[in-house]
Amino acid sequence: MEARARAPGKIILAGEHAVVHGSTAVAAAIDLYTYASLTFPPPSESDDELKLHLKDMDLEFSWPVGKIAVILSEVGGHDASTPSSCSFETIKAIASLVDEHNIPEAYIALASGVSAFLWLYTSIHGAKPARVVVTSELPLGSGLGSSASFCVALAGAFLALSKCVKLDVDNKGWQKFGDSELNLVNKWAFEGEKIIHGKPSGIDNTVSTYGNMIKFKSGELTRLKSNLPLKMLVTNTKVGRNTKALVAGVSERTFRHPNAMNSVFSAVDSISNELASILQSPVSDELAVTENEEKLAELMEMNQGLLQCMGVSHASIETVIRTTLKYKLVTKLTGAGGGGCVLTLLPSLLSGTIIDKLIAELESCGFQCLTAGIGGGGAEVSFGSS
């Protein structure tokens, strides 16, 4: 039996950076996914290894389950229906298992993801032989929630073949988890995110698990149901950025200009709340859709202007903005800024020819373009014979 789970990436539609200073932000799932498959070897096989294949990077890892059982003796003995945090000692023990593989320097950032994999798998299934294969449609480290969707997809696949989740294994299509099962997937994914990021907000894994959209402010998350079918062009500038440094830069600017920056954060809060209410308002016809798209475009444009005020834009982002403006389209950065990914709203009446021309122009600048539907479904699972 094989369980295959998929989990979407995410974008921040409004409110990044300002959310750290108490403003509202809105995040949404995108229909670009990470896939994880789990297969147990048949009892007739004498395979006694846990294997992980990160297909996109052509990286393979394997550990004898006997060794895992000795090094991680305290995991796998508890109930998978009650997620627990990884202790500092266990993180060190897992890191020693990962270090054995001498990950190439170009992929060293993936080491924490491999550690999260080992923790999630052994916590849910113990030291049991299996093969896990992961592929993703999301660029890594570009602000699209790739690590969260990795953790959600793994948790989904592992729980699907555990005793604490009841699913229809005869249904060969993609199927949704029930609400209580989604809660469990989300909690385990959050534990994985903690290994990768230390202190994640929980926003990325929540969007990836439940899909659609969420509004968040001061640690409070509210799930939203969008009534507007949105489509975005996501442009990956391929410029790496230091999120911590960008967040610190906004805080320093706030310290130097508290009144001005508090006004900026207050304006962002208004934009996020207005954007959320537009997305949730019912649309009766094509005209209503177009009107709402125009309002959203204006709000995105305002939000981008305020992000420039915060000092988190970048020459690569400005290049994308100038290019899309030629086509009368609105663009804003998403996530930390300083490079990373930017969003361009694609109105529903925009012709495919114009989109193709725009993509060609952006790709000639060395950028990567992805078209994504916004606010789709969350984690899902399918079953097959291995």
Results as ranks from 00 to 15, higher is better:
108 I>F: 13
183 N>K: 09
46 S>R: 06
32 L>G: 01
116 A>P: 02
281 S>Y: 04
17 H>A: 08
36 A>Q: 02
49 E>I: 02
308 Q>T: 07
189 A>K: 02
142 S>F: 07
160 A>W: 03
332 K>R: 11
277 S>Q: 12
203 I>Y: 11
59 L>N: 10
334 T>Q: 12
372 A>W: 01
380 E>C: 08
6 R>H: 05
261 M>S: 04
276 A>G: 10
258 P>F: 10
199 K>W: 05
138 L>W: 01
59 L>C: 10
144 L>Q: 07
115 S>C: 12
172 K>E: 13
29 A>G: 14
284 S>V: 01
47 D>E: 15
209 T>P: 05
156 G>E: 14
132 V>A: 02
232 M>N: 06
9 G>Q: 13
349 L>F: 06
368 Q>L: 15
30 I>Q: 06
324 T>Y: 02
360 A>K: 11
206 T>K: 09
298 E>K: 13
348 S>I: 03
156 G>H: 10
126 G>A: 14
234 V>K: 05
255 F>N: 05
329 L>M: 10
286 E>Q: 09
226 S>A: 05
83 P>R: 08
210 Y>V: 00
183 N>T: 03
165 V>H: 02
28 A>D: 00
4 R>D: 04
237 T>K: 01
276 A>F: 08
355 I>G: 00
134 V>N: 01
363 E>W: 15
350 L>N: 09
229 P>L: 07
110 L>I: 07
50 L>V: 03
287 L>M: 08
59 L>K: 11
171 N>F: 11
255 F>R: 07
38 L>H: 04
140 L>N: 00
357 K>R: 09
89 E>P: 00
137 E>R: 00
57 M>G: 05
262 N>K: 10
129 P>R: 09
166 K>S: 15
213 M>H: 15
169 V>I: 12
213 M>E: 07
134 V>D: 01
197 H>S: 03
269 D>S: 13
339 G>Y: 03
202 G>E: 11
304 Q>K: 03
206 T>A: 14
99 D>L: 12
259 N>F: 07
80 A>S: 15
377 G>W: 00
74 E>W: 05
17 H>I: 08
116 A>N: 03
221 L>Y: 14
320 V>N: 06
151 C>N: 11
325 L>T: 06
370 L>M: 15
251 S>R: 11
74 E>D: 15
271 I>V: 13
303 N>H: 12
86 C>E: 04
53 H>T: 04
276 A>K: 04
64 P>H: 15
123 S>Q: 02
153 A>D: 08
187 K>N: 13
258 P>S: 10
